[in-house]
Design a binder for these strands. Structure first.
Lengths: 340, 340
DNA sequence: ATGAAAGCGCTAACAT
DNA sequence: ATGTTAGCGCTTTCAT
């Protein structure tokens, strides 16, 4: 491997001179610089970034940790973080936690390979987070709440989102509204459910009968919906913890010969790209993902700069009205022994 | 910052002993190890990965470069590379070329920060690729063809894909088939077009009238389609360089009061998630993305191992038949001065 | 089993 | 303007 030493020798200058020349310092004469650059080119010299980081004690890179590094969900969010990161002269790399404790995420966090991190990944333990966050490596955790030094949180207001979706359904006259939630390790899903329950309670509805879980996948939504439909009493509306599950729901409904929204109204969560193309187009709740991304990145840089920042931010959420909901066809099927 | 030196001192052992203990070598007695581990915990010691890499002269990480780190397109591909990378005990990080020469991609490639790279990004110059690929850092370039030492290529057989899509349309009786391609820096798009032309030629059709470019975006597809439809003679079918553009096409067609597939048949390319939910569901060409991902990763590791590998791979492509095509309604509108 | 010391490739303070 | 040199934090050889 050709090092700066080789370049220096080849150019007939001292090691430091080569270093200066290569880094564009004005401490060397144009002539020497040219000499060095020439030598570097001839030898096909490539700088070793680590050696540099080691000296400089900072990497100028931010790490973005996602649960699977894929999925349409992240697009906008990534774009947001990327813009901010870049305009601060930093680099952004992304990795996932696939592989558990051997995962790239763990390695990069534990080995001080980055100057800051943004984490959107329930698999990263609070322990690791607290252990890794430090002066020189602030961490922003998204969609969950983790306390600790140099740890900040940003999330969409999922409670609000859940509440508004349910409220919307109730305003149309629905009273029998089912909830199909995400996995239990998703705080976002829990909060949506909280909002859902809050809305129900406001109307004095104590629904516990129609609460199921999918796992945020189409598959899961499909199965949970089938389970739901096999019960004696059916809801007039279903609120899904995310859009993917709602897609599965559409499928299950179709299999039961039920149509949306005539027989049952549906609302999803996330507003992924497909939502608008489903038939009927899915009414759903949109999270301000781009804003969440920029927000997170800004926080990282503020914390780096030692600025005082609030530890926790909640961003407003927006209901996207499409065609998957309408008032329930009949008077709700109550009087079969339900209270109120 | 607490270093291994501090840990050693705190534990009352030598630097090297601490290092051994920390890395789980069996050269230290269990007792000393315990001592060191304890000290490390007390001081909240975190190893510095760079220093380690510097010594070890390898990073055990592979870099995946994508043009924008987002977009539904990549999902499967990423999953493929990730699986292989992980099972080889390596880490995978992803970054984009946003930022041009200042981008993360450039930095990581130029500064020897990784042991290999997979590039799916037309923005990375051939020059950089050739400069960066070397023993100890093989590079696999996807969807384009770059020659050089330690550079390999994997791509879907886009020519075949373009050919089959067009052939399919022609088998239904279409003769007036438009092409709306991607940006000119996309070799994939060029190849698809090549296949398209080849199919046309087989029937003796020398179509040049209906060839436009979008830029792989919905927006672009929309506009190009409008331009197309404003012309006097209209095609009976349109073949889009990717699905996003086809979506834009659907929209433009609707605005012109034309329906798919009755008035014009459509085929897309890529088979993104939305394709199946469009109405009508989009007939399109699926690339074996997961396989391309695993293939690329395997190649990187083989090259690392010094194994002889072919430099170039082409993967078969598959036509997904949905409902956006049907035979043209009338006899094709020829006889207006067209040859044959 | 443990310690001393060399050195990975680089930057930057210091000397010339 | 250029050269000399001391580390950055770590691994690893070689003595002990």
């Amino acid at each position: 491997m050709v090092t700066i030493k080789d370049v220096a020798k080849h150019a007939g200058v001292a090691l430091s001179t080569a270093s200066y020349a290569l880094s564009g310092s004005d401490k060397v004469s144009p002539k020497t610089r040219e000499l060095v650059l020439q030598a570097a080119k001839e030898l096909n010299y490539q700088k070793n970034g680590f050696a540099m980081d080691l000296k400089r004690k900072s990497t100028k890179t931010i790490l973005l940790i996602l649960s699977d590094l894929s999925g349409p969900y992240y697009s906008e969010l990534i774009r947001g973080t990327q813009e901010v990161t870049l305009s601060n002269g930093f680099d952004l790399i992304a990795c996932s936690s696939v592989g558990g404790a051997d995962s790239t995420a763990y390695k990069f966090l534990q080995e001080r390979r980055v100057d800051g991190a943004i984490v959107l990944d329930p698999n990263i333990s609070e322990h690791l987070l607290r252990e890794s966050a430090r002066e020189g490596c602030p961490i922003v955790v998204m969609d969950r709440y983790v306390e600790g030094d140099f740890i900040m949180n940003v999330a969409a207001d999922n409670v609000q989102g859940g509440y508004e979706a349910t409220r919307y359904l109730m305003d149309q006259g629905h009273r029998d509204i089912a909830w199909i939630g995400g996995p239990s390790n998703s705080l976002g899903s829990q909060h949506r459910k909280e909002g859902y329950l809050k809305a129900l309670q406001e109307e004095g509805i104590a629904n516990t009968k129609w609460m199921l879980v999918g796992n945020f996948t189409e598959e899961g939504g499909y199965h949970s919906t089938k389970v739901l439909l096999m019960q004696e009493e059916r809801p007039t509306a279903i609120f899904y913890g995310n859009d993917e599950m709602a897609i599965g729901g559409y499928k299950a409904l179709r299999e039961f010969g039920l149509s949306v929204p005539e027989d049952v109204s549906i609302v999803g969560f996330d507003d992924i790209q497909v939502a608008e193309y489903l038939s009927p187009p899915l009414t759903t709740v949109r999270q301000p993902k781009y804003e969440m991304g920029t927000m997170a990145a800004h926080l990282v840089f503020q914390a780096m700069g030692g600025e005082y920042v609030n530890k926790s931010y909640k961003l407003k959420i927006e209901l996207i009205e499409r065609l998957s909901c309408q008032p329930p066809r009949l008077a709700p099927n109550r009087g079969k022994g339900m209270e109120t």
